[in-house]
């Protein structure tokens, strides 16, 4: 029983990290069909934001709470700059966008190396997140519970925006049919930019959260970006619930594989599972219905 609860929690925790890093990506990929390889570097920027905030404020508790909105802001601003300077000019060339944003990610990584140095830095976690909570005889790390709560909050906030606000309505319209949305007077350019702001901002929040689990380095983003993309592929584009289910299923699967084999085998088995899944549902778990042939 302890093992089951332990594995379940490990899976949920893994899933909550996956959804945090993939949520913004699912939004921007669904909205514009572009793959932003620099998303990982926005995560890194968020993590360094937490590091800088702690350097300025000193106290780990207050700096964490301030770093979360700051990380969102910094990630978001970086995303908007990227969208305005490069991505906007490359609509209709998604594969080329992937490569261009990879170039951006190379530059951002080197920038981090030059500013903060190549060695990893550590962000201290606040005292109220250092212990663990006992549930059913199993100790659950408080930091992981905090990340789980943060992930749920982010998903809830984004879902509410998509569902109830006028921005959300515009986003849904553009995802379903870009030309038609433009025809009825929606400014797709402004919608795209706002979407990119929110999506990249979520990457920043994910970065702040990751500092609770380990040290921060210039290559932090590259370690997570592939996993984030897999979540989006399995979840299907244009829907948050797809990404949500995919993240938690993949998280649980990974912790089960990891328990029965090794960490490296678990990654390989997970990939095989995804390829097999795509045999059944090539479009991912959910996809927006279109009449396209593709």
């Amino acid at each position: 029983m302890d093992v089951v609860v332990g594995q379940l929690f490990a899976g949920l925790s893994q899933g909550s990290i996956l959804i945090l890093i993939a949520l913004g990506l699912a939004l921007t990929f669904g909205q514009m069909g572009v793959i932003n390889m620099a998303h990982g570097e926005f995560i890194m920027a968020g993590a360094y934001t937490a590091y800088v905030m702690q350097g300025i404020l000193g106290d780990a508790g207050i700096s964490l709470l301030i770093a979360i909105p700051m990380g969102f802001l910094i990630g978001g601003v970086m995303g908007v700059i990227l969208e305005a300077v490069l991505i906007r000019h490359m609509y209709g060339r998604p594969l080329d966008t992937l490569l261009v944003t990879w170039g951006v990610s190379l530059i951002l990584q080197q920038l981090a190396r030059d500013i903060f140095g190549a060695p990893n830095v550590d962000v201290g976690s606040p005292s109220w997140l250092q212990g663990s909570v006992e549930v059913g005889g199993v100790a659950l790390a408080s930091a992981r519970l905090f990340i789980l709560a943060l992930a749920i909050a982010c998903v809830a906030a984004l879902s509410a925006i998509i569902r109830f606000t006028s921005l959300g309505r515009r986003v849904r319209a553009v995802v379903q049919n870009r030309e038609l949305a433009e025809t009825v007077g929606i400014s797709t350019r402004r919608t795209d930019r706002l979407t990119f702001f929110i999506g990249s901002g979520l990457a920043g929040v994910a970065g702040v959260a990751l500092t609770l689990l380990g040290s921060t380095g210039p290559t932090l983003g590259t370690n997570y970006i592939v996993d984030a993309f897999l979540v989006v592929v399995v979840g299907g584009i244009g829907q948050i619930r797809g990404a949500l289910i995919a993240a938690f299923v993949l998280g649980l699967l990974q912790s089960v594989f990891q328990y029965s084999t090794t960490a490296s085998m678990a990654k390989v088995l997970l990939l095989i599972a995804i390829v097999i899944f795509l045999q059944v549902r090539p479009q991912g778990i959910f996809s927006v219905r279109t009449r396209s042939l593709a």
Partner: peptide, 9 residues
């Protein structure tokens, strides 16, 4: 683009 983006399809 059409493959990746239903809007362009």
């Amino acid at each position: 683009a059409a493959a990746a983006d239903p809007a362009l399809a």
